[in-house]
Amino acid sequence: MINKKQLDGQASPSPKPRHSKQPASTPERFLHRLFGNERELKTNLSLLSMSLPGIVLLFIFAYLPMLGIVIAFKDYRFNLGILGSEWVGFQNFRFLFGTDAAFRITRNTLLMNLLFISTTTVCALTVAILMNEAYRSRLSKYYQTMLFFPYFISWVIVSYFVFAFLNGQTGMINRWIDALNLDRIAWYRSPEYWPAILVLANLWNGIGFSSIIYLAGILGISPELFEAAKIDGAGKLQQIRYVTLPMLYPMIIILALLAIGRIFHADFGLFFFLPRDNPLLYSTTDVIDTFVYRSLVELGEISMAAAAGFYQSFVGFLLVVGANWVVRRVNEDYALY
C-alpha cells in the first residue's frame, strides 16, 4: 500500500537557484556550483552527507562503467583484456547498418516508444486525476494497488497471459470469436495487430507507476489554488484544465524528457517475449534490442554488443539535449538544465 506520507515525500523536486552570485575563478566556481557558498555548505552539510552514498553508487555504476565504451571500438578478446585488445575503429558498428533491417528496427523502436510515451502520459494523467478525486474513498488504496501490481510482473509471465488470450488453437479471444460466429484471427501470424497489443500491454504494466508519480504531483498542489478557483466559479473540468494541468507541466515535461532519453532503448522483455520472437511478426515488433540479440546470440561478440549499446546511448543523449533545447526555447523554467 502506498500512503499519503510517502507520496508527499516524493513530491516534485525543489527549484534550483538559478541566478545566484558566482565567484570568479573556475575551480572555485565549480565548487560553488556544486555546493553553494560556504554558508549554504554549512547548513546543508547533513543533507549533502546523506546524499553521499547515493552519489558514490551513481559514480561507480553510472560513470566508471563509461570507460568500457572503449570496448565498442576494440576487437575484445578475454585473454588480452580491454586495453590489450586490438583497436578496430568503427568496424563493430557495421553490422547494425549493413542491411535494410537498420531502417526497420530504428523506425519500430522510435515509433513504438513514442506511442508508449504519449499513451502512458495521457492515460496516467487521467488516472491520476481520477484517483485524486477518489482519494478519500475507502477503495482508493485498493485502486492504487491494483493498478500498481502489474508493474511487478515479469514480461515472461505476461507473455504467457498474452499467449493464453491470443493463441490460435485454444486462445480465449479466438474462442469468443467462435462464439460470435466470426472468422478466427491468427494473432501470431498477423503483424498489423501487434503495435496495438504491445501498447496495451505496456499501458497495463506501466500505468500504475506513472499515475502514482502524477498523483503525488497533484497532491503537492496547494489546496488554496483549488479553493480560489472554486470561489471564482470554476467547475471540476475547469479546475483540472486551469489549475491541475498547468501545475503539473514541469513534472510532465521532466518525465517526458527522461523517457525521450531512452527512446532508442526498447524494453527488451516486452518486445522479445510477447511476440515470442516470431519471425512473422518482425515487421512491426523488431526493435534495436531484439535485433542485436538475434544477431549476436550465436556469435557472442561482446564488442559488437557494446557498439550497439553505445550507438543507442549516444543517440539518446543527442535526443535529450535536443529536446531540452526545444523546451528551453519555449519556456526556460521547464527545462531540465
Binding site: I60, L64, P65, L67, I71, D289, V292, V297, I302
Partner: peptide
C-alpha cells in the same frame, strides 16, 4: 529492466574493468 543477456554481460564486464 533487464535489457539483453548480452548487454548485461557487457555491463558486468565494464564494471569489472574498474
Amino acid at each position: 529492466r533487464v535489457l539483453t543477456i548480452l548487454s548485461v554481460l557487457l555491463l558486468a564486464s565494464m564494471v569489472l574493468t574498474a
